[in-house]
Each structure stands twice: as structure tokens, then as C-alpha cells.
Amino acid sequence: MKMSQLYDRNVVCMACHQQYTTKKIRSRFLRAVKHDTDFCSYYQPEDLNPLFYYVSVCPCCGFAITEEFSSYFPPGTREAIQQNIRTYWNGKNYSGERTLEQALQTYQIGIYCASMKKERHIVLAGLYMRLAWLYRTYEMPEQEEQFMRLALKEYTASYSIEDFAGTHMSEVRLLYLIGELHRRLNETKEAIRYFSRVIAKKKETIEKRIVDMAHERWQDIRYNQRSSS
């Protein structure tokens, strides 16, 4: 019997406490064929992309999460979620195999839920960034730029108040991402400022590859500036 490329992962909804399943891609079937300088990965075939299944949506109440969501609900947010999400939920089920359109819908729901729950900036940034990557993969540059800008805003806020502490995101990686987003948005002065911060941490970080990448991007900017002048 041929093994399915997808498997069911059990999830307990944080909002209504109902259990449901969501699809994930078996790691043996993930085939990244290219990586961008902001860590966007491309997969073959395109629909076997883990970004399609990053957001889990409860079919019972419509509350959507990622694995980065905290279990803590600030005061008043449960009631707001009840009034603004669960009351109007149409029962749509995203627990099966997803199309691009369905994946995009789950991000929209996830972003709304994260905002209602007052999730950390680093969590919202992750949603915006991955949504930008999806739009890039399918060559929708206007939408890609829109969500890169939103990701940049949230990453910068996260760095400012350090709400990335205790997550998989290190300070060096976050500084690099902020710089790279500025570079991709043609904000070279800010890009250089953040890349310089990464390079300055060379002796105190174990993430030497990130430092090297920051130096490479800084050199790319200098080369392009010389070429244009």
C-alpha cells in the first residue's frame, strides 16, 4: 500500500476545547528545491508545501492557531473571540487536503484570530511572513509586498519589546530578517543598519552562517549602489 503524503495531527482547540484533526506533510515527502535569502523555500510539487498547513482551523468554532500561539488568553479576549468569531462561524472545514485558495483563507483567519487574541508580535510576524512567501511562490508580487511590509512592522515591534525571547527566533536571526525585508522593499539605508548590527555580533553568536549572510547582503547593496552610480 502506498503511504499517504499527508497525515492527520490531532489538535485541541484553545477556544472551545473540541478536538479535531488537521493535515501535515510527512517529512520524507518534503522536497525543497530552492531557498531565498529571507528563508523562503520552494517545493516540488508546489502543493506539497508545508506552508499550506501551517495554520490549523477548528471546524467547530472557527478559531485558528499555529504551533507558535501561546495558551494564555489576555483578559477579555475569550469573550471577544466568542462574539466576533464563533458567533459568525459558518462551519467550513479545513481539515482535509488544501488548495492554494484554502491555504490563503486559513492565513486570513489565523491573522484575525491572532489579532483578537492579542498574540505576540513575533507570532503575527510569522503569519505575515509565510503568507508573503506563499504569494511569492505563486508570483503575486503586489500581495507579497503588502505582507512583507506587515511582517517587517511586526518583526520590528517584536525586536523593540523583545517578545521573541523564549521562541525559536534568535536575536541575530531576527535582526537579519528585519534587514533583509528592508532590502527587499528597497529601503537600503535601514537594511544596512540592521545588517551592520548582525555583523557586529559575529564574536558573540554561534549562528555564523547568519552573520555571513548579512555580510553578503551588505555587499550586494554596495555592489548595486556602485553599479547604479
Rank of each mutant, 00 (worst) to 15 (best):
T77S: 09
C60Q: 06
T66L: 10
I85A: 08
I65E: 14
G62S: 04
Y88P: 00
V57Y: 02
T66H: 09
W89D: 03
E67R: 12
E68L: 15
Q83N: 13
F73A: 06
S71K: 13
E68M: 15
I85V: 15
W89S: 05
E68K: 13
C60W: 05
A64Y: 04
I85N: 07
N90I: 11
P74R: 09
G62P: 04
I81V: 14
S71R: 13
T77C: 07
C61Y: 04
P75F: 01
V57H: 03
F73E: 07
Y72L: 12
I81D: 02
P59S: 02
S71F: 07
R86C: 08
V57M: 04
Y88H: 11
E67Y: 06
A64S: 10
N90Q: 14
F73D: 09
I85P: 08
N84P: 07
C58I: 02
N84Y: 11
S56T: 11
C60I: 01
P75N: 02
A80D: 00
K92H: 06
C61I: 03
T66A: 10
Q83R: 14
W89P: 04
S71M: 11
N90A: 11
G91F: 07
G76W: 08
C61E: 06
S70Y: 09
S56R: 05
Q83W: 04
P75G: 00
C61A: 04
I81E: 02
R78D: 10
T87E: 11
A64M: 07
N90H: 11
S71T: 15
G91M: 07
E79I: 13
E67A: 14
T77G: 07
E79Y: 03
G62W: 03
P75L: 07
N93Q: 00
T66Q: 10
N93A: 00
I85C: 10
I65L: 08
S70I: 07
P59Q: 02
N84T: 12
A80I: 05
E79M: 09
N90E: 13
N90S: 12
A80C: 04
Q83G: 04
Q83E: 15
A80Q: 12
N93H: 00
S56I: 01
E67S: 15
S71L: 13
S56G: 06
